[in-house]
Design a protein around this nucleic acid. Structure first.
Lengths: 211, 211
DNA sequence: CGGCATACTTATGTATACAATCGTGTACAG
DNA sequence: CTGTACACGATTGTATACATAAGTATGCCG
């Protein structure tokens, strides 16, 4: 499986290639990706199940989220990230810790204005933290939630003054994991995600279009 | 959408109609459900994404879980059920509480040996509790986890002495929700699910085939 | 002039034909 | 007798033709 057009369409949706109300007709995608309707339909179905697109009437459009929905997803994610951090503190192997340390070092050398690089490495750090739980179900749930808001997450990292705090949080989190302290690791993760939500809310209040 | 054969196939998989290593060939399903390959393939893909079937080499088979995997899923579910109960204590409407009360009353009048009825109403109770959170993301995550182990959950409820404890837990949980006490509601839910996991582990130790 | 019915256009839902691939069995060689 | 290579069969992946239904525009009637 893992049809190439499935991934290409996903990337395009996440990269906001399509307007929020632009109908993703099978004919259009067929031409765009040079495949027939069958694999296109398959890709659309998968993205629909992932919550990245939705059927509106007959047409399929990229799914947008209201402010309430994004808050809701964030709140669920706070819970899962807390649980993941706590579990990682118990289950992480030496390799996991090494990889996390390396990623943090990488992040510390980035240009804080390069939003794209920030988002990319930040995501890699989170993904590695999830893997460090060695819990397939947790990883699956977190990936699912992350995907649904990935189109929006770029913005919080470039919020004035945010990036240094992120780095400090991660350093503290790693220390808690090194110390095998699940309670502290969970608290840090929960606080970190709560702050991210708070920033998002503030940004929304300042300019509702940032959604 | 909501193809009827998708639901039928799902029900059959959950009802263990197919052997764990029986290949679900499209030809066979085509004949069984009287549809062509296209909708059958669609159904298979959806079930695959739901984690109910998996591709083994070329064939698709119903997914089985090792003891470790089931424990892992339970542990994630403990976290989510705790969060859901806590949130329900805050967000539940009068209607939600009424529905939960009604379901509990129903459960108290069931024959404790009728495993099928127990499982059914128990599931309805959980589902209503999830809805009482009014959190689409939480509901989605819990539904996802539940589906993956639904084939196994029947058994814990009929474990000797378990059912009365379940009813007592639910009554206590409802009281916490009525009292709008999220901490207590979460604790009860977490304890309840932990006990369910413990029972499953005990059953597995007594007879590994119960998986 | 406005609303509703109806025909038409366009997109999706379904079936089937064709292509490619994977697994398997068999035959041959070492 | 065993390991490997090759060929065949079965099953899935892809393309396309056909059926159906939803959305839309137009024209007629009120």
């Amino acid at each position: 499986m893992a049809s190439p057009i499935h991934q290409r369409l996903r990337e395009d949706v996440l990269a906001s290639v399509f307007a929020p109300d632009e109908p993703l007709t099978e004919a259009k995608l067929t031409e765009r990706y040079g495949a027939s309707r069958t694999p296109v339909r398959e890709a659309l179905q998968r993205l629909e199940q992932d919550g990245l697109v939705e059927r509106r009437g007959k047409a399929v459009v990229v799914r947008t989220h209201s402010a309430e929905e994004i808050i809701d997803i964030y709140e669920s994610r706070i819970i899962l990230e807390q649980a993941a951090a706590a579990k990682a503190a118990v289950k992480a192997t030496a390799l996991d810790r090494q990889l996390l340390t390396g990623l943090l070092a990488q992040m510390q050398q980035l240009d804080p204005s390069d939003g794209r690089a920030l988002a990319e490495t930040n995501r890699a750090f989170h993904a590695q933290l999830w893997r460090a739980t060695h819990s397939p179900s947790l990883i699956g749930l977190l990936e699912r939630l992350d995907q649904q808001v990935r189109r929006y997450t770029l913005t919080t990292l470039t919020y004035p003054g945010r990036w240094p705090v992120v780095l400090a949080d991660y350093a503290e989190l790693l220390a808690a994991i090194e110390g095998a302290d699940p309670g502290r690791a969970g608290d840090i993760a929960a606080r970190h995600m709560s702050e991210a939500l708070a920033i998002r809310l503030k940004m929304y209040a300042e300019d509702p279009r940032t959604l």
